[in-house]
Design a protein around this nucleic acid. Structure first.
Lengths: 253, 253
DNA sequence: CGTGCCGATGCCCGTTCATGCCTGATTGTG
DNA sequence: CACAATCAGGCATGAACGGGCATCGGCACG
């Protein structure tokens, strides 16, 4: 097995499980720990992994708190299905706004190489993922970067979204319901989401069913601002019916 | 069997099995390893295969950024020393502008955790690296993202730098000399560098000695715009003297 | 039919690369 | 505060590499 293959595999493992450790990798690949360390160092320098004592964690995580691995793995299946279903809703070409969020990030990572899109995002991990994509013209929205979500917020971000007009915005929300609309815990982030929502002709919301009927501190839109909701089949058909009556098309992936 | 036929077949084998190795191919086609290496090199240059030590892997199977990885390995030692020396020039607290560039990125990665800085950057890799640094308030400069350098450029970036004032800017250049000043191959990038330079009270340039006396297409400043140049000892003391007489302090790490 | 050119191939040899091993320093944990 | 795990750097080794040169074989042209 060649070094780059091994590194690629390490990267995959890291992204899948949220972290890797030197000793298990050495055993797994039948090489010494030194070699693994060299691999991790290379991946670290390339910015794909973050080296920590004893192992490494994937770079560009939405947050790196201990709770993350668990949160990531929670509903991972649903998120993947949602991301895949969302891909089908993307135009083959045109302009796209991508909100910050792990499901949106998964979708972004799966955009096929032959696409020809203009993408605007204020999410650092998504931008990092798409910067190499040959078919994508990427525009980064600046601003203060929130540690927790790695998303740009505040004046620069708001102004940037105020100056553009996109075909589709793919948004994420921490909570959604007919009564309380779209909510998220942070005010600054909500303001940016609202600006992104306003800048697009068509709004697609990606949210797994655990977000349904949740409400958080900051509201950034009403449900009927959303043209299409993509969620998983944890949402009951009755709830989906309620949402559709409120004017939002619902896809249960 | 003619060379193009053989290469075609090598490509097919590589795509089928995910990898090929020099020795087996040599045996398979009854030619020497040198010939296979030449074939692989040709396919690599054509972008169809990715060459690795001992063999090759079909292109697209790895998602490394070859350009970035390659630049990382060039003059890695010098760059590390320069980056380390540059750290000593950073204020303990205050506002910092970080330009795009591998040496600057290394410096950024080495900023101690106990620092308390406000950092502004238009470089995506650097931002990704600093986004979860607890002591750093990070501000991202938006704009169109260039594939080659992963840096934001154009109107949004220029305006953002026009609106701020920082204590120190850490810049990179592809070429520097007393006569031709600071140059880089891309016009858009040069404009952003100039804006960053203008926005800072003190300008530190990181450039290894191979950049000395180089000149590239786009000029973004004169040498005396630079307060401090940090380079390696590949720069002769005489050349350093010339630079100092031109008004720039020189550190040879 | 001969001849000279040129690309492809093979061979040689100094250099680089990937890996493993060792040692001393560093770090995290109990 | 001490112990065990982990890390970084230096060194050794065998495989792989790359450039220079010689050879071979086809092809065009006279």
């Amino acid at each position: 097995m060649y070094a780059p293959e091994r590194q690629q595999e390490i990267l995959r493992l890291a992204r899948d499980s949220g972290r890797v450790d030197v000793v298990s990798l050495a055993e797994e690949f039948q090489v010494t720990a030194e070699t693994i360390r060299r691999d991790l160092k290379a991946l670290d320098r390339a910015g794909l992994l973050r080296r920590v004592h004893g192992g490494a964690i994937p770079a560009g995580r939405l947050d790196f708190e201990p709770g993350l691995a668990e949160r990531e793995s929670t509903a991972a299946d649903e998120k993947d299905r949602i991301a895949k279903a969302a891909l089908a809703e993307l135009p083959a070409e045109g302009t796209l706004i991508l909100d910050a969020g792990s499901t949106v990030a998964r979708m972004a990572a799966a955009i096929p190489p032959e696409s020809s899109l203009t993408v605007v995002t204020h999410s650092l991990p998504i931008a990092a993922r798409l910067a190499d994509h040959p078919g994508i013209q990427l525009h980064l929205v600046g601003g203060r970067v929130r540690h927790r979500t790695h998303a740009a917020v505040d004046a620069w971000a708001l102004r940037a979204y105020g100056e553009i007009r996109a075909d589709v915005a793919v948004l994420a929300a921490n909570g959604f319901s007919v009564e309380h609309g779209l909510t998220t815990p942070d005010l600054a982030e909500a303001a940016v989401k609202r600006a992104a929502l306003t800048a697009a002709r068509r709004v697609v919301l990606l949210a797994d069913s655990s977000k349904y009927a949740q409400e958080h501190f900051a509201r950034f839109g009403a449900l009927d601002d959303v043209d299409l909701l993509i969620t998983d089949n944890g949402l009951t058909p009755e709830d989906a019916g309620d949402l559709e009556r409120a004017g939002t098309e619902v896809v249960r992936a």
